[in-house]
Write a protein that binds this DNA or RNA. Structure first.
Length: 550
RNA sequence: GCGCCCGUAGCUCAGUAGGACAGAGCAACGGACUUCUAAUCCGUGGGCCGGAGGUUCGAAUCCUCCCGGGCGCGCCA
């Protein structure tokens, strides 16, 4: 908000320089938050950039820029510093207004003008061949939180789960279940070579004993279909339940099979055929993805006439576009990184800009038990479900833990540590700050101070450094949200909340809120209420609760 | 061999779009509860930002090469 304003007035001043003959083409106005307090609340290296382009002394440019700023009195001072930075120090009046904004008009405070009609975030789309593993939770919380953020900004965003219910792995799932079914009856049967060996299929097999009579009447083909459908539905049910308990509500569960059924794959082939991007080789049908920067051409229809997963995926993305999404975000495991290029290539081939699709690659999670790595494998059945960990550790710590780290870097999830040190999880640090705010407000009410009374407070009494620190952080909340929209790096939000919590705890320690000085009490209560609102708002985006007591 | 990601304090990681003296948590050590919740606060120590070159007024950040770790290189999904 404030940063956007600074950007705007700098942009205007820059334009002024351009009109006076300087070359300002292609210079982007960047406003950053300095590491050192002495360098102001906001800062820009703009003069350096202009100077470089025009071979002029940066300080000279800086003076010209500053003299042309229409500042609207929101700054206490504007300094030119160092080799050519302009540093902005916001006025107390502005900071005080932040409180009013937060308490009275939060939606407007965080709002960012909408540039998209409909956004879709697709995440968590694991193969429905087993329960959700704890490591899967990473992509889930990232996608879920991003979608929450877009909605918070007042944008239209949907959450979607893509069900891979067509393909070999589902056949294999059915066969694995059938094997277990025979096995528990003591019937000798060879387990499918690459089959799924997890315990969960045994449980299902026992369930099916109740339907033995019905099953016995089926012929081979019917049986195969029955076991497949049964396993798939049960797995899906399990995944849905797990995600729901984890606090994730999808708008759409999209079936891959439906694409096949509705001829969407053929449609893709027709379009690509028409545009001349497919050809036949070795009795397979290929897509010339190399024309769009991919390393190799890719097969769309196999020699045996069946479609590849990739063709279905293209049809899926075309369908997304046809459903009106103009910003599509896929959250994928990093092991699929090689597919990014071909996916974007396919969009281009269909005549769309590859920029409507953003793919977030989430690096692998390594599971540890103490120092030992636990190999994740659905096939061998050795894994720890999200549900299981959630039961022991709780939803909030898991979500926060996974959201805290950049999706670019791998991370270790130590199950022992997570269980043992659930109490040490930084999420509690943030929640505790919130609970403290609530506690103060509660006690204020007991002393007959109502929330309406806060409106009449004299906020100029907030002069302490600790108070100012807090106000500045509050002011930056919308900036942070904007950064996340730009970079899709949701981990910035938990880090911000930690900073805010730190500033609050520090304030709490040195500035007593409820005192005999009623005027000061009222002013500080305003601040406390604002902190409470922002922490709660941020945690809500992350899908984490904001307890009022701890 | 080729491609993608990573390498920052003892450990786990931040480091904003190339900006000003490299940060936090944990661990270690030393302080602070008669007080609105000590799940907290204050302080101390700890770093050739994997290595070498290069671009730049300026590099942890960009480029090249090398070393180390992970992941991919299917007419599987």
């Amino acid at each position: 908000m404030v940063r956007e304003k600074i950007k705007k007035i700098l942009g205007e001043a820059l334009k002024g320089l351009g009109e006076r003959g300087l070359n300002v083409n292609g210079i982007e106005v960047i406003v950053e938050i300095p590491k050192q307090k002495e360098f102001g609340d906001y800062s820009t290296p703009l003069p350096l950039l202009v100077a470089q382009k025009n071979k002029k002394p940066p300080l000279e440019i800086a003076y010209e820029l500053v003299n042309n700023l229409k500042t609207e009195n929101i700054f206490e001072k504007i300094e030119i510093a160092g080799p050519g930075f302009i540093n902005f120090f916001v006025s107390n009046q502005l900071l005080i207004n932040i409180i009013k904004y937060i308490r009275k008009d939060l939606d407007n405070f965080v709002k960012i003008p909408n540039t998209y009609k409909k956004i879709q975030v697709e995440f968590g789309s694991i193969n429905p061949t087993g329960p959700m593993h704890i490591a899967h939770a990473r992509g889930v919380v990232i996608g879920d939180s991003l979608a929450n953020l877009f909605r918070r900004l007042g944008w239209n965003a949907e959450k979607e789960f893509y069900i891979n219910d067509a393909g070999n792995q589902i056949d294999l799932l059915g066969e694995s279940l059938y094997s277990r079914y025979l096995e528990i009856q003591g019937i000798n049967h060879e387990f499918p070579k690459e089959g799924y060996r997890g315990e969960y299929l045994k449980d299902l097999a026992y369930e099916l004993l109740n339907e033995k009579e019905k099953i016995d009447t089926m012929d081979g083909k019917e049986k195969k279909e029955f076991f497949k459908e049964y396993a798939l539905n049960k797995m899906l049910e399990n995944i849905k339940k797990t995600l729901q308990n984890f606090g994730v509500e999808y708008d759409c569960w999209f079936s891959e099979k439906s694409l096949h059924r509705e001829g969407k794959l053929n449609k893709v082939l027709e379009i690509l055929q028409e545009k001349g991007y497919i050809y036949k080789k070795d009795s397979a049908i290929w897509f010339s993805s190399t024309k769009f920067g991919d390393e190799d051409d890719r097969v769309l229809v196999k020699r045996d006439g069946s479609p590849t997963y990739f063709l279905a995926d293209i049809a899926y993305h075309l369908d997304k576009i046809e459903r009106g999404f103009d910003w599509i975000i896929d959250v994928w495991g990093a092991d699929h990184h090689a597919h990014v290029k071909r996916m974007k290539a396919s969009l281009q081939a269909l005549g769309f800009s590859p920029d409507i699709l953003d793919i977030i690659l989430v690096q692998m999670v390594r599971l540890l038990r103490g120092k030992e790595e636990v190999k994740i494998s659905k096939r061998t059945g050795d894994f720890i479900t999200l549900e299981e960990v959630q039961e022991e550790v709780g939803k909030d710590p898991i979500r926060f833990f996974f959201l805290l780290r950049s999706s670019d870097s791998q991370l270790d999830f130590d199950i022992d540590l997570a269980k043992k040190q659930a109490v040490d999880n930084p999420v509690y640090y943030v929640q505790y700050a919130h609970a403290r705010c609530c506690s103060i407000l509660r006690q204020a009410q007991e002393k007959n101070i109502n929330l309406e009374d806060l409106d009449s407070a004299d906020l100029t009494l907030l002069k302490d450094n600790k108070e100012k620190e807090l106000l500045i952080l509050l002011m930056r909340y919308p900036d942070k949200l904007r950064d996340i929209v730009r970079t899709l790096e949701i981990h910035l939000l938990p880090h911000y909340l930690l900073d805010l919590a730190t500033a609050f705890h520090t304030f709490y320690d040195s500035c007593r809120v409820l005192t005999e000085d009623r005027k000061l009490t009222l002013a500080r209560l305003n601040l406390v209420d604002s902190v409470r609102i922002i922490i709660s708002d941020g945690l809500k985006i992350l899908g984490i609760s904001s307890p009022e007591r701890m």
